[in-house]
Computed example of a mutant assay.
Amino acid sequence: MDLSGTSAIVSGGASGLGLAAATRLHAAGAEVVVLDRPDDASSTRAQQVAAIGERAHFVGGDVTDPSAAAAAVEAATDRAPLRAAVSCAGVASPGKLVGRRGALDSETFMHVLAVNTGGTMNLMAHAAEAMQANELRGEDRGVLINTASIAAFEGQIGQIAYSASKGAVASMTLPAARELAATQIRVVTIAPGLFETPMMAGLPEEARTSLAEKTPHPARLGRPEDYALTVEQILTNPMLNGEVIRLDGAVRMEPR
C-alpha cells in the first residue's frame, strides 16, 4: 500500500518497537499519529515523537480508555485518510499464579489484560470504523496490525497475565479479519520473540547476552527495525491477512 497522502496511528509509538514502526511509516510518507501515555516530569515522549519528523504528531492518552483511541483516530483523519493502525502499547507485569506472597493478585492480572488486550481492541475498533469510509487504495481500505508475543504460545513461568493477554491478541486476529473482509480491511498480528526494548535494556549485559544466544539464527536479540520492516511488509502484501506472524529467529522458549 502506498502511504503517501495517508495517515497512520501507532499506539505505544514513543519508544521501542512502536517508535521504530512510527519512524518507518513516516519515512514511507504517512502522517503518523502516536498514541502514548502523557508526558510526566521524567518523560519526553512527545519530544521523541516530534524528533521523527514534521508529519509525526503526539496524542497523550491511556489506551485502556476508548476515548483516547477515538481522539487518536480523529487526529489522524483530520490530516488524511487513515490507512494503517499499529498497536504496540503494552505492559509485562510478571507474576506467578501462586507466588511468595500467595495467589496472584486479580487486579494485577486484569490490568495487564486491560492494557494489552483491551487497548488493542479499542484502537482496532475505532480505526476500523474510520477506515470503512475510505476509498479503495489497491485492494484495501486499511490495515490493522497488532502485537502479540511468542509468550502467547510458549509462556514461561511467571508470565500468566502477559501470556494470557498476548494469547488473546493472537486469537482476535482471525475473527477480526473475517469480519472486516466485507469492507476490505486486513488484520495481521506480529508475535515478536526476544527483542531489544526498553524493558530488555534494563537487564544486566550478561543476561542480555544469554537471551540473545537462545535465538538459533540470527543469534542476537531482535531489533526494533526488524519489527518495523515487518509492519511495512504487511502493508505492501495484500495476501497477508488473518495471520499471526512469529518474528523470532526460530526461538522456542523453555519453561524458565
Rank of each mutant, 00 (worst) to 15 (best):
M1P: 13
T6F: 08
T6L: 05
A8D: 03
G18F: 05
A20L: 05
A21C: 03
T23L: 06
R24A: 13
H26M: 11
A28F: 11
D36V: 06
D36L: 13
P38A: 15
D39P: 14
A41H: 09
R45T: 11
V49I: 02
V49K: 11
G53W: 03
E54N: 15
E54C: 15
A56M: 02
F58K: 02
G61M: 03
P66K: 00
A68G: 01
A70T: 11
E74V: 15
R79S: 03
L82Q: 13
V86K: 10
G90T: 00
K96S: 14
K96I: 12
L97P: 08
L97A: 11
L97R: 09
R101W: 05
D105T: 02
V115N: 02
G118F: 03
M121E: 09
M121Q: 07
L123A: 02
L123G: 04
M124T: 14
H126N: 08
E129F: 07
E129W: 00
A130Q: 12
Q132P: 12
N134R: 02
E135F: 14
E135R: 11
L136K: 07
E139C: 05
D140N: 10
T147Q: 09
S149R: 12
S149G: 12
A152N: 15
I160F: 10
S163K: 08
A164H: 12
A168I: 05
P175T: 06
L180S: 05
T183I: 13
R186A: 01
T189R: 03
A191L: 03
G193V: 02
L194H: 04
L194V: 04
L203S: 09
P204I: 06
E205S: 13
S210C: 10
A212D: 05
A212H: 03
A212C: 04
P216I: 07
H217A: 15
R220A: 11
R220N: 04
R223I: 14
E225V: 11
D226A: 01
T236A: 14
M239N: 13
A250Y: 10
A250G: 09
